[in-house]
């Protein structure tokens, strides 16, 4: 079942008096439960693609359906509530709130869920911190944590609302190699255990190899679709402007 569907999505930015095409007629669908890497050179449109999927940017044209919601025509408030309940975000720069403790950072997205009382929130936060092995660091502020620990707090914060999709824009780019691998392993583990869909961008070959699906973008278009089975990538090259439906679906 597809959890994300993009049809002929184009995104253009005005830069001075000419237009930059960050996404150029992208059509794809992403199955629920995948661990998907979006790869491509700098400026190819990875972040833009993730932003459109995450409903924090709207396409110039085309249709986007996320977890069954067609996002075209939705108000900013409706999109905010869709993000709050179905999408988790992990950022390259961690983006923790500096004035909040680790536990408060993790609790933050739960505050807008009226159905949870203080006790529910406390339990969920504690469980999440345990999951990312930071149970003992609940009271630490972000500046008292290492980069890897911060990113793990961010992962806990992204997962605490039990979202269907987690989006991560270069989650390991600001971490040293070993720490990055740990973060990736943690994400992979959560993906397997809870069937949470993970979509992340990267330039790193090693990171790509942790994924089970691959989308290669270049100049705003999808060029490569990959599926990994039994350790081997099955790669499909996509024509520059595919007339047919491009899919990352399992064979």
């Amino acid at each position: 079942m597809a959890i994300v569907v993009l049809e002929h999505v184009t995104k253009e930015y005005r830069l001075g008096d000419h237009m930059v095409r960050a996404l150029d007629d992208v059509t794809l669908s992403i199955e629920s439960g995948v661990f998907l890497a979006i790869a491509g050179p700098s400026g190819s449109g990875k972040s833009t693609l993730l932003n459109v999927i995450g409903c924090i940017d709207t396409p110039s044209s085309g249709r986007v359906v996320v977890a069954g919601h067609d996002i075209s025509g939705q108000t900013p408030d409706q999109l905010a509530s869709l993000r709050a309940r179905t999408i988790g975000f992990i950022f390259q720069t961690f983006n923790l709130f500096p004035v909040l403790t680790a536990a408060e950072n993790v609790e933050y997205p739960l505050l807008q869920m009226d159905e949870l009382d203080r006790e529910d929130r406390r339990e969920r936060v504690q469980a999440m911190l345990e999951l990312v092995q930071l149970g003992k660091f609940a009271k630490h502020r972000p500046n008292q944590l290492s980069g890897g620990q911060r990113q793990r707090v961010a992962i806990a914060r992204a997962l605490v609302t039990r979202p269907a999709i987690v989006l991560a824009d270069e989650p390991t780019a600001n971490l040293d190699h070993k720490t990055g691998e740990g973060i990736l392993a943690l994400m992979r583990d959560i993906n397997r255990r809870y069937k949470t869909t993970f979509i992340f961008s990267t330039h790193d070959k090693k990171v790509i190899d942790a994924a089970d699906r691959l989308i290669g973008v270049e100049d705003g278009s999808v060029r490569i679709l990959g599926v990994r089975k039994e350790g081997q990538w099955a790669i499909t090259n996509v024509a520059r402007r595919p007339a047919t439906h491009a899919e990352t679906a399992t064979p």
């Binding site: 995450g54 924090i56 900013p76 408030d77 905010a80 509530s81 993000r83 709050a84 309940r85 975000f89 950022f91 720069t93 983006n95 709130f97 933050y108 997205p109 807008q112 914060r157 609302t161």
Partner: peptide
């Protein structure tokens, strides 16, 4: 600005 963007990505409305 980064913090504002983060809040809104996490689902805070403009009103918030």
């Amino acid at each position: 600005l980064g913090e504002i963007g983060t809040c809104m990505a996490l689902g805070d409305s403009r009103r918030t």
